[in-house]
């Protein structure tokens, strides 16, 4: 039997579809009581990974367990894990209520549970309508209701915000936070960091099927080095003057600007004044998670991995697969 911990563990997970390597040697742990964001651009392997965790796709290598067991050894799995997957189906001519009754029977929960979950997602009134007539947002709510039928300990959601209106997204956020506060586990995927930034504690960022970053969101935010974007009259003169002040990390940026790392706008301005270089624009950039996310996942970020990042203290065993671009 499973250990009841509510922990999801993914170890050296790989999946090949023919010659396409969808997921490559992915490892991470999702601890109970937290909301973990599973981030990456479309096609990064998020959905495949989630489906391997849920036993829908057979891994080529590695293991994915919930409560220490693969999905098909959980006994009555819907009691342990509920999921909202993209592209999950409803029979268009079956009513929402009947859809839930089918799976209530399969899980072995009484029919009154159907009314409870319908109420929980706000679909009580629409319960006797055919799922085929539902909007995308209503379908997502019905999928969530189905996931909640077995009162599971773990929730896995694949792009749940798709099709939800802003009100629905806000509702989902507070729902997931409450769910995690009860000591339960949430793993939620998204291709937009901003969409889940306010909801998640921990983040797994993948690109091209590989882990790019795995750790606390707060660490990621703190690790972002401040940058100054400056538009000088003479690029070479300013670069030389900055290097004389031991400021050496200078890169060309967009719009003819220079990006200067690990400094402040004030310092750059003072140095420019002393060097007699006119400044037409000066801007300080702080932690921009979306930008960082883009850098991590665009495959163009080539800086050396900062080793202090990426490992939550309780899981030192995963060190080998963490950090920024550690596997590139």
């Amino acid at each position: 039997m499973h250990d009841g911990s509510g922990r999801i563990e993914v170890r050296q997970l790989s999946k090949n579809f023919g010659s396409v390597r969808a997921v490559a040697n992915l490892s991470f742990t999702v601890a109970p009581g937290s909301v973990t964001g599973f981030l990456g651009p479309n096609g990064a392997g998020k959905t495949t990974t989630l489906r391997m965790i849920l036993g829908l796709v057979t891994p080529s290598e590695g293991t994915a367990t919930i409560n220490g067991m693969p999905h098909d050894k959980l006994g009555n799995p819907a009691r342990v894990v509920g999921s909202v997957l993209e592209n999950e189906g409803f029979h268009p001519k079956r009513t929402a209520r009947n859809h839930l009754k089918v799976y209530a029977a399969a899980i072995g929960v009484p029919d009154r549970r159907v009314e409870e979950v319908l109420a929980a997602v706000g679909l009580t009134e629409a319960g006797d309508r055919h799922a085929g007539g539902f909007s995308l947002g209503m379908r997502q709510r019905l999928a969530l209701a189905t996931a909640l039928l077995g009162d599971p300990q773990v929730l896995v959601l694949d792009e749940p915000a798709n099709g939800l209106d802003p009100e629905g997204i806000a509702w989902l956020r507070s729902f997931l936070r409450d769910f995690a506060k009860q000591g339960r586990t949430v793993l939620v995927s998204s291709h937009l960091l901003a969409e889940v930034e306010q909801t998640i504690d921990q983040v797994v960022i993948i690109s091209h099927g590989q882990t790019m970053y795995y750790g606390q969101l707060a660490d990621l935010r703190n690790a972002q080095r401040p940058r100054v974007l400056v538009l000088p009259s003479d690029h070479d003169a300013l670069s030389t003057a900055l290097r004389e002040e031991q400021i050496t990390e200078i890169e060309p940026a967009d719009d003819g600007r220079l990006a200067v790392m690990n400094t402040s706008a004030r310092l750059v301005g003072d140095i420019a004044l002393r060097a007699g270089v006119a400044i037409y624009g000066l801007e300080e950039r702080h932690a921009d998670l979306e930008n960082l996310f883009f850098q991590l996942t665009s495959g163009q970020y080539t800086a050396a991995p900062p080793q202090q990042l990426g490992v939550p203290p309780q899981h030192p065993q995963d060190k080998g697969n963490t950090g920024w671009g550690g596997q590139r």
């Binding site: 036993g55 098909d72 009555n76 819907a78 999950e88 189906g89 409803f90 899980i107 077995g150």
Partner: peptide, 19 residues
Amino acid sequence: ASELGRKTITTSFLTAPNR
């Protein structure tokens, strides 16, 4: 076939002990 076509097989598999 219709469960596969309509993707309801996903939920059917997820709510059964095993396939």
